[in-house]
Design a protein around this nucleic acid. Structure first.
Lengths: 193, 193, 193, 193
DNA sequence: TGTTAAGCGAGACGGTACGTCGCGTCTTAAT
DNA sequence: ATTAAGACGCGACGTACCGTCTCGCTTAACA
């Protein structure tokens, strides 16, 4: 019966958060700052998000684009398509920070686990889908989808985790070659030179 | 010309820092905390390190475990050996969190980047060595060592990133199977079915 | 033409206010608290009273106990009777605190002055009456009733102000002896020694 | 060994508090306000005083002058002297508030009890002294000093408690007459018109 | 006997102050 | 002259009430 949490306040807050992050970096992100910049009262911010880092994560999350699941008919094709998109996104400023931020925040605060779950799930959904279809097509042997998803995304996650350098296309190709072989796919796409 | 900065204070501070990190995580690391725990005055801490994160970095840096590089004669054997050690380390309570926090902290604070680099590098060194030897033995075709290291590490990093469940041995085996195939190894240690 | 402000809500609010004050003191009195405890919406509270202190005042005002004026035929007898009742009230847990908080709150907030006036007035009325009758009986010389009331009340107020110890009966007797002499009464009820 | 709480900060804070109270009333007294006005950090304020009301009480306390103990040779004389001074002080703005504030604060917070004790004790010391000397001189019969002090100050405390009107000289005279008779002193000072 | 304007519950909202925590600097006394 | 101890200015944190607002729902007086 009462008013629901207003989308207006919510959006103003998120927008202000993103502006603040853009201007001052993650370091400069502040609840007081967001409140002042957005015109949304601090109290209200805390009504919508439980902590500063929760809003931070959310604001970053909203900046990251959704990835469509490609369907080229072959596993390597799908992977190449997917990771090309992914590469563009990962190389956007802030994306890497989002993932790392979120990972550590959720490790610290169990309440954030579900948020992370959703975010990670959303990002990893296409991979699972691609692998599932490849199995259905008989392109690769039956596998535990979960393990497969982890192995497929593995190199990308590791790369992101370890280096802040932008991901190059040739790296993507190399990873896909590797993954395809690992999954036992018949014809890798590898096109040298 | 007066007394130089004392090593005693320095060591007490580092030790206390490590204890604090172990107990409370990176989040719980505090100059006041270190001062109180170590008995070294805050003034002194700032004389030795210029900021909180500098000391944090240093303390973590001193803590990076040297993982011995196994040498069983076969790539899968080496990997299994290595990741068994790794698994023990990763499954220690707090390790996962430390890694994740490290990651996000370093994304925020460029000063931390160097330590993360060191921690990551230390983990990567044995992998590079193992792959290099496998190539020398003719067990696998020539590869870019850097890419290989990332692909090998990949599933483990991704697993750690995604799930807080302890890593099981059978998962390690599955990942190694996958990696071995991905690297083009002739005879994997373990055939499914 | 529409519906008038409902007495039901009004009464629930007042009752809840009194409960809140009884439990948490004036300090603990809160519009949110009253709303929650009474089930009356904050909106409604503000429709009935213009501010928190207005409701507080009203609730306290409704609570002022009517102390019966004793009539034993002698001034000391009347006083003893009156202050025995008073003693019982003052020694109730919370009463002292309520009075003191009332006093300071009214010093801060002029809106509360009127309630305090009411509370004080109600306490003074029997005293004035008792003294008036004593004068009529010729028991004591003519006096300014206002001054007399203050002097009679004096020791009890001061006692309450200074000490949180419960008021003992022998103290009451001592004060009454003193007061009776001060008022010039012929035969005190109680000779020391 | 470390720096003691600095008197400079302390004094600046008290002064600012008094200015704030003078300008905005007790209602307008605020820790943030004091911090801003004084240039003393809020943290430091809380290092010196445990709460806003503790500083408030202290600041008010510092505004109240110390009362010298008169020694005219007779009880009524001493009382008249004392209460004339007292009257001047009580009629100063803030004094009444101080007493009431302090009383309720100490009733609420046991930690303040000692502060109140000190303040009240300081104020009541002259009364006890005066009565003690009157007993020594044989001017009045032996009495329990504590009870005597309460009865003497009674009317004044009650007056202060009950009314915010300034205390008039004729009231003081009336109270002293009353007190003198109550204590059984031989020759009241009463000088009609 | 509807109609309808107001009362009502729930609680979100913009504010302001609270009291706490960590940072990095400073001051003091004691080695 | 370095140290231990810790006070200091700063500024963010997350919480508590305030008094206002916006919702649907209910209800009593009028038409």
């Amino acid at each position: 019966m009462p008013r629901p949490l207003s989308k207006k306040a919510r959006n103003k807050a998120i927008e202000a958060s993103q502006m603040l992050i853009a201007e001052c970096g993650i370091e400069g992100f502040t609840m007081d700052g967001v409140a002042k910049l957005s015109g949304v009262a601090k109290t209200t911010l805390y009504r919508h998000w439980n902590s500063a880092s929760e809003l931070l994560v959310h604001a970053l999350d909203c900046q990251v684009e959704r990835i469509p699941t490609p369907d080229t008919g072959s596993l390597p094709g799908d992977l190449f398509e997917l990771f090309s998109t992914m590469r563009a996104i990962i190389n956007q400023p802030g994306t890497r920070q989002l993932f790392l931020e979120m990972a550590s925040a959720s490790a610290r605060d169990p309440e954030l686990e579900s948020v992370k779950e959703a975010m990670v799930g959303e990002r990893m959904r296409p991979i699972r889908e691609i692998v599932r279809r490849a199995v259905e097509r008989g392109e690769i042997p039956e596998t535990d989808l979960e393990v497969a998803a982890v192995t497929v995304e593995g190199p990308f996650v590791a790369r992101m985790f370890m280096s802040s350098e932008p991901l190059r296309e040739d790296e993507v190709r190399a990873y896909i070659d590797f993954i395809a072989r690992g999954l036992g796919v018949s014809s890798p796409i590898h096109q040298p030179g």
